[in-house]
Computed example of a mutant assay.
Amino acid sequence: MKKFILICTLSAFPQFTALAAEQTLLNDISLDAAAVSHAGLAISTVTSGTVFPTLPVICQVMPDTTRLVHLHPAGSGKVLAVLVQPGTRVRQGQVLLRYQDHSLHLARLQDSQTQAALTAALAVQYDAAQAVQRAKQLVGQTISLAELRRRQDALAQANADVRIKQADADTLGHRFDEEFNSVSEQGARQGHNEISTLIAPVNGVVQSLDVSVAADISPAQDVMTLADLSSVWIVSDVSADQAARIQPGAQQSMDTPTGLVISRIDTVAAMASPLTGLVRLVSLAPNPTGSLVPGMVFNGTLSEKDGVTGMIIPAEAVQKIAGHSVVFVQKDITHYHPVVVDVAMDNGEQAVIHNGLKEGEHVVGHGSFSLRSILELAGMDAD
């Protein structure tokens, strides 16, 4: 019999508590300054605006493929030294690799031959120009008009030969200036040193390395890849129906150990992956400290496109009491009034209120649970 009475009492007790709580909803809660401090109440101001529903997602950090640098040597040769390894952080201009550049050696020989040929062509041009000048002075005397024309033709041929040789020299000069010496490679044009050096064209991280000491390399070979991680892609894969609720420009929040990372969705894939059936969303996030490393996975949220407008308060400000959504409005530093509100939407961080609050009012955010407990205890006492 005692067991039966105990069960009945416990089952009925919440009903009496809920009823008492309803009766005390109009009563203010009064706390002294010490109790306010102990409760850790945080006060927020009611503002009007629009809150968007959020979608929980898994976010993966990926390198921005538009900022990947694939390094190729300008010439063919044999690797002498590899000065980095995968994962090494490099600065712009840092030496990455040295190799014996056979192509540079051949280009120097060709350059010497071209310069010699240009010098010879210039000498022939000078002689032909002098011959024409003399013929013009002596034409009709010791030089015939036909001889003058022959010498003029020879000068024209010499001029054309100089232009050809100069073009050859300029082409080689361009190779030395733009190929063997560039933002990613250094190689001396003069001297007997046939060593070329690959250098980092950007600040970044060595993502991959496909070369070793004593290996043969050529211009067609991708010897290493650098990733400029000053910004990265944040990639989320969602179902097709979820993707329909997301549009470019939507806010994406990613929770990392170093803090919250906010980005904006740049692209929503036009089709789902044939392997997973998921739609890929991509946003670009700044990464000035390099704390976001490709391959990292974090929890995140996406803002959906259909927002709700109303009075905005922290989601934790809303408490459930006797089936009602209740917010505690601050009347002064020690008095708080419970108000029944109509919650139009709650995305876990913010709540939109349609009825019960006015813009500019002050409500209890963090610590509202303590006030709820006080109110419920008052209801139990009244019971």
Rank of each mutant, 00 (worst) to 15 (best):
Thr50Ala: 14
His38Leu: 09
Ser230Cys: 10
Ala156Gly: 05
Asn27Lys: 11
Ala167Pro: 02
Gln166Cys: 06
Ala74Tyr: 10
Gln190Leu: 02
Val95Gly: 14
Val202Ser: 08
Pro274Lys: 00
Thr119Trp: 11
Leu26Trp: 10
Ala315Trp: 10
Ser11Arg: 06
Glu194Gly: 01
Leu145Trp: 07
Ser236Lys: 00
Asp153Ala: 13
Gln130Pro: 02
Ser182Gly: 08
Asn27Trp: 12
Asp177Met: 02
Arg98Pro: 03
Ser325Thr: 04
His354Arg: 07
Gln85Tyr: 10
Gln350Thr: 08
Leu41Gln: 07
Met345Arg: 09
Gln166Trp: 09
Gln221Leu: 09
Ala39Phe: 14
Gly93Asp: 10
Gln137Ser: 06
Ile58Gly: 12
Ala351Cys: 10
Ala128Thr: 12
Gln190Tyr: 09
Met224Glu: 01
His362Arg: 15
Ser236His: 05
Ser368Trp: 08
Lys2Leu: 06
Asp101His: 06
Ser212Pro: 01
Asp127Trp: 14
Ser370Leu: 06
Ala167Ser: 15
Leu106Lys: 02
Ala215Glu: 15
Leu106Met: 05
Asp210Phe: 12
Val139Gln: 12
Val340Thr: 14
Ser112Tyr: 09
Pro201Phe: 06
Lys2Ser: 14
His70Ala: 14
Ala344Gln: 09
Val363Trp: 03
Asp216Pro: 01
Gly300Val: 04
Ile312Phe: 07
Leu104Cys: 11
Arg372Tyr: 08
Gln133Ser: 13
Gly87Phe: 03
Leu96Phe: 13
Arg89Ser: 13
Asn203Lys: 03
His105Lys: 04
Ser112Glu: 12
Ala121Gln: 06
Asp153Asn: 12
Gly187Gln: 03
His70Cys: 03
Ala117Cys: 04
Lys331Ile: 08
His354Ser: 08
Val341Asp: 01
Ala117Val: 05
Gln207His: 07
Met62Thr: 06
Ser44Glu: 02
Gln113Trp: 05
Val57Trp: 03
Ile262Arg: 15
Asp168Pro: 01
Trp233Val: 00
Glu194Arg: 05
Gly49Cys: 08
Glu147Pro: 01
Ala81Gly: 09
Lys331Asn: 11
Val211Gly: 04
Thr88Val: 04
Ser144Ala: 13
Thr225Tyr: 00
Thr309Phe: 11
Gln242Gly: 04
Ala378Met: 13
Val341Gln: 08
His192Ala: 15
Ile265Asn: 02
